[in-house]
Design a protein around this nucleic acid. Structure first.
Lengths: 107, 107
DNA sequence: CATCCCCGTAAGTCATGGCTTACCGTTAGC
DNA sequence: GCTAACGGTAAGCCATGACTTACGGGGATG
């Protein structure tokens, strides 16, 4: 269920860039917005979305908010993807088998 | 680069539903659209997007087009996700270490 | 050849969501 | 206490993209 959220959240390029910047380590909002093609409020909004999705966590340090990556937030999506290896292939083979036999029979 | 495409393509719920339906095995367009909350042309459009993204492949069987999952299409996204395990943690630790030392020094 | 399904494509509508500017609360420094 | 930096939130604008209906082409079947 939540892998859906992760997908939609990471689909946006700007938001993904924000996320990637945090990958190198925790950063304050200003630092993240630095050199980005969008305004700082935009970055704030993206961070909120990332946080709500559990992909990022926030900690206050004086007047600044330090954001960092929450790797566990990616777990569900990873598992979902992983579930395609193996299973999907087997299903395919079975289906191919079935439709092949069906055709043979109807000849 | 291509994992970005995969993300945006799989972000849409309807399109994901189409993709998931193919998971059980190859299907014709009609069969996929069957019981879906959107029209058949909508499904066709989603299939085109999925195909362009390399997530799905198409084969003609008489008058019908049979679509099936291309697991390799998910590989890049999986690798990208996988790259967060380990690396991200190390970067975090390093960063935490660094900022800790910096603070200690400035006391 | 006529007809009926299959399905892809075109054109047009409408909602979603990402961006900007403007504003406000909060913390630190003088 | 004043001022300045940090950053979250509101309101409004606008583009993107997901739908719909309408159509047309191609393969099967009588």
């Amino acid at each position: 269920m939540a892998y859906a959220t992760t997908l939609t959240v990471l689909a946006d390029p700007t938001r993904r860039e924000v996320f990637e910047r945090l990958r190198a380590g925790p950063r304050a909002v200003n630092a993240i917005a630095q050199g980005m093609p969008v305004s700082r409020p935009a970055v704030s909004q993206h961070l909120k979305v990332l946080k709500d999705a559990g992909l990022v966590e926030e900690r206050s340090e004086g007047v600044r908010r330090i954001y960092s990556v929450r790797r566990e937030g990616l777990a569900e999506l990873r598992d979902w993807l992983e579930s395609f290896w193996g299973e999907a292939l087997d299903a395919f083979k079975l289906e191919a088998e079935r439709s092949y036999r069906t055709k043979q029979r109807s000849k």
